[in-house]
């Protein structure tokens, strides 16, 4: 156990080893470790970002769905309203048409009745004249009493 040259030999070996470690061992390992640390941190951040995106998308989906539902409801409501309107309209126009047909029929009836009345009146007048002329025979001159006969016709 003498102190001798080994001391210096060890010091030299020590310095060489430390130098080698500092140059060729430590930097690549620490660089790799740091790179991996960054990569893991990035990965975690990306995962978190993905979760956030997913939540946002789900929210969006829910919103779109509810909007669509609302729109469908609106469309159904409008259709129902339209249906009622159409029925009402149809009813209205049917009524108007009916009224019109009724009126036309009535006026036709009136016209027919008038015409029948006129014809009847004319026939009655003729009959009356014929009857009267048969009764009166010669006394009544149809030309001379035309005016009186006309008045009679009008009174019927």
């Amino acid at each position: 156990m003498n102190i001798n040259l080994t001391l210096i030999g060890q010091s030299v070996a020590f310095i060489v080893f430390v130098w080698f470690c500092m140059k060729f061992v430590w930097p690549p390992i620490v660089t790799a470790l740091n790179e991996r640390k960054t990569k893991i941190a990035d990965g975690l951040a990306a995962a978190e970002e993905g979760q956030r995106e997913k939540a946002k998308a789900q929210e969006h989906v829910a919103q779109v769905t509810s909007e669509a539902k609302e729109q469908a409801q609106e469309i159904i409501r409008r259709a129902e309203r339209r249906e009622v309107e159409m029925i009402e309209e149809a009813k209205g126009s049917a009524r108007v048409e009916g009224d019109r047909v009724l009126t036309a029929a009535r006026s036709e009836i009136d016209k027919e009745a008038n015409m029948a009345r006129e014809a009847l009146r004319a026939q009655v007048a003729g009959l009356a004249v014929a009857g009267a002329s048969k009764i009166l025979a010669r006394e009544v001159d149809s030309d001379a009493h035309a005016k009186m006969l006309d008045d009679l016709i009008a009174e019927l």
Binding site: F17, C21, V25, P28, I29, L33, R36, K39
Partner: peptide, 14 residues
């Protein structure tokens, strides 16, 4: 020590 660690250092990646 240095040989082993150097070998590991060469393989060290992210």
């Amino acid at each position: 020590f240095l040989w082993g660690f150097r070998k590991a250092a060469l393989r060290a990646t992210a």
